[in-house]
Design a protein around this nucleic acid. Structure first.
Lengths: 204, 204
DNA sequence: CGAATGAATATTTTGTTGATTATTCACCCC
DNA sequence: GGGGTGAATAATCAACAAAATATTCATTCG
């Protein structure tokens, strides 16, 4: 359904079923053979959006020559940048997401769960190869996810710039990594560096 | 102005200046000799509320026989419990706070700053007595504050119970303390225990 | 004259109505 | 008969009027 452009351009409430039907060369009534209601169209669009965003993040896992710490950090930074740019450049898409979450709370829960699973996978890997240490991977996953919540919903509380948020996130990660990373032969655990903005991770 | 009861009972929008004036045995016009507008009355109430809340938290600092870690943890837990109970039992007070923040964003910024200062004081102390270690107290303060943001605005994103939030917070603190606490003679850093709910810290 | 009033005015909220839009469904076409 | 239509109906939104309320200020009071 390429008519998601309409939502992105005119916004969810201002887009009518009649218009959508016309785009698809259908009658309004026929739309309801594919979707139970208008909101379900939005849900489907948001679902694809969310899946593709996670897929992009997963590409970080595929990169070789990266420590688990780096992977974790890059995923979290990429996430911050992605939602930040969305908020700035695609306000209508954000509005769509808000409508979906308001109407279908389950949607958000599942999105967050997907993201946590990504964290958990990286943590597992890191523990398995002796790079990270933790008593309990699931508990640490939840903690890590909760600690970085602010960077998943930036600009909701504070109106900070991306640069400020990145600097702050670097401090947060430095602190948490000191309790997570296995030190190398007495050397202190280095502070987190803000990674390069990777076009392939933030584009769209 | 004891007529704050009205806001707490009927809510900010449903309380009229005329009622407030009657409570004070005044004419409506005379209120404006004391407050610039209706919102300023709410600001004053919220300000006192916020100050007394911080004062209560500061009483934790006065307690002897407590490590810096314990103090930090107790302040954060007390904060979570305080706002959680407020949200449950005093919805009108929370509404008041939201109105104030919406109208006067500066108010929230200053409340957060006060709280951060409290964190910073504890951190300083801990570093001074060799109990905690960090490169930079200010940076760590900001990081700690950001990491615990979820527990300062509970139930806004998720609808978790207080018990869940406390368990989660304990994991978060365990993780961060491993990077913050100076280990004692090779012994591992213990996990965070959920402190007793101290009536003097959560009452009202 | 400063403190206070309360009627006058400005602003915000509430309620109502008409129009727009979502959804259903009896009916048509291939 | 399955896939589709579009008029009929229900739900929602937008615009406007009426009512309630915040704020001002000329006037009074002590």
């Amino acid at each position: 359904m390429a008519a998601r452009e309409r939502f992105a351009h005119y916004g969810y409430p201002k887009t009518t079923i009649a218009e959508l039907a016309k785009d698809c060369a259908m009658s309004p009534g026929n739309i309801y053979r594919f979707f139970k209601g208008k909101i379900d169209i939005a849900v489907e669009i948001a679902r694809r959006e969310a899946l593709s965003a996670v897929e992009v993040l997963e590409s970080v896992l595929a990169c070789p020559h990266r420590s688990s710490r780096q992977r974790l950090e890059e995923v979290i930074f990429a996430d911050l940048r992605h939602t930040y740019h969305l908020l700035e450049n695609q306000p209508k898409t954000v509005e769509l997401a808000q409508v979906v979450v308001a109407e279908r709370p389950q949607f958000q829960i599942e999105s967050l769960r997907r993201e946590r699973r990504l964290f958990q996978r990286i943590l597992h890997e890191g523990v398995a190869c002796g790079e990270l240490m933790t008593d309990s991977v699931p508990a640490t996953t939840i903690a890590l996810h909760a600690m970085t919540l602010k960077y998943r919903y930036p600009q909701i509380f504070t109106k900070q710039s991306l640069e400020e948020l990145e600097r702050e996130l670097a401090h947060v990660l430095s602190l948490v990594m000191r309790g997570l990373v296995v030190p190398k032969e007495g050397a202190p655990i280095p502070a987190t560096q803000i990674p390069e903005e990777d076009a392939s991770l933030t584009l769209r």
